[in-house]
């Protein structure tokens, strides 16, 4: 019988996914409120200068496409690490309070500091995400067994609810904040610019390195903390590094482009259905499936309502929810 796990199958799967990501990236450069023909895309990419579309391509489409690639990879990876860390197939970084914290950070930026430029929100969103997930981690890891999945989920739910109600309180009291916040609260790739991506790059790279560094630890944890320890893994260290990777990846993502749901939740499921439960395969698959899904959704958002756009966060939620239900009903959701 064909072994689902053989290394050559895994590698050819990755190559196929990489090609698909490349195709979607090309589409993302070409498709928008103004359609750019493929030959113009290629000439702008490989011999820039002078082309009619070069400005649009280099100033708008390429930063947006790169944002889709790196944020998609970050969301896919952080979802896979989060589900491995918590051994929970329906976990997403929201459990650590990342989204609640980022939203609160943005509200503080608008309401307390009166900052209306969305670029100023980025730092506050990341700080909020980092602080709230640190609080969740501190509360959830108290006690002898450390940060067990159950304790983390409880701490995350409680603290997220608390922070969420603080956010709501401000939003209902202040209509300016409410108006500004509306735009942030549906994630969009449209505002991504090169300098923002450069600022995000070190955080994303650090998160990705950590994620790939804890692969063996996540594999060991998938058999339970006791078996992991009996295999010589330092469970607390693995869990801490995995949580830090999640915060760096998804915290940066939510800060840079706003909350985008369902990518981090759904992508790891597809990765496991394609590649089995081993994190050596789940992580690279998720890192490629993430951009495929996010850029795909972004392209759909650009064309469904021409001449205006639908934000990518709305598309991933609208498409992601039914797809996720379909997945669950087909029982391709694998127990962790």
């Amino acid at each position: 019988m064909p072994s689902r796990g053989s290394a050559t199958t895994a590698v050819s799967g990755l190559v196929a996914l990489a090609i698909a990501v490349g195709v979607v990236a090309m589409l993302s450069i070409g498709v928008g409120s103004r359609f750019i023909p493929p030959d113009s895309v290629l000439s702008a990419l490989f011999s820039p200068g002078g082309g009619f579309y070069d400005n649009v391509i280099w100033e708008l489409r390429i930063p947006r496409t790169v944002a889709g690639l790196v944020i998609g990879a970050a969301l896919g990876l952080s979802g896979a690490v989060m589900q491995g860390l918590t051994r929970n197939p329906i976990a997403d970084p929201g459990i650590l309070g990342v989204h609640a914290g980022a939203a609160f950070g943005v509200v503080v930026a608008i309401y307390v500091f009166g900052l209306l430029d969305f670029r100023a929100h980025v730092g506050f969103a990341f700080a909020g995400a980092a602080l709230v997930s640190a609080a969740v981690w501190l509360v959830g890891s108290r006690g002898r067994d450390g940060a067990t999945p159950v304790k983390l989920a409880l701490a995350g739910a409680a603290i997220s609810a608390f922070i969420g109600s603080a956010t709501s309180l401000v939003l209902y009291a202040d209509s300016t904040a409410f108006d500004e916040f509306r735009f942030w609260s549906v994630g969009s790739l449209a505002g991504a610019k090169a300098d923002l991506l450069l600022a995000a790059a070190p955080f994303l790279a650090g998160g990705a390195l950590l994620a790939f560094g804890v692969i063996r630890g996540l594999n060991a944890l998938s058999m339970g903390a006791d078996v992991a320890r009996s295999l010589g893994q330092r469970v607390r260290l693995v869990r801490g590094a995995a949580a830090l990777a999640v915060v760096l990846l998804s915290g940066t993502a939510v800060a840079a482009v706003g909350p985008i749901g369902f990518v981090g939740l759904t992508v790891p499921h597809v990765a496991r259905a394609l590649a089995g439960p081993d994190h050596r395969r789940v992580l690279p698959y998720s890192a490629l499936l993430g951009p495929l899904v996010l850029l795909g959704a972004d392209i759909v958002g650009r064309v469904v309502a021409i001449p205006s756009e639908v934000q990518v966060g709305a598309i991933t939620a609208a498409v992601g929810a039914p797809v996720f239900i379909w997945f669950v009903r087909r029982r391709t959701v694998r127990e962790l």
């Binding site: 072994s3 689902r4 796990g5 063996r216 594999n219 060991a220 998938s222 058999m223 339970g224 006791d226 078996v227 009996s230 295999l231 010589g232 893994q233 496991r272 089995g276 439960p277 081993d278 694998r334 127990e335 962790l336």
Partner: peptide, 25 residues
């Protein structure tokens, strides 16, 4: 090495992959 009672493996993990994890230390 220690084998707990009723250990659980993630769904879909092959025997070869499980046994290979015994090499982690």
């Amino acid at each position: 090495s220690v084998l707990p009672q009723g250990p659980s493996a993630p769904e879909g993990l092959t025997v070869a992959d499980l046994v290979a994890r015994g090499r982690y230390p």
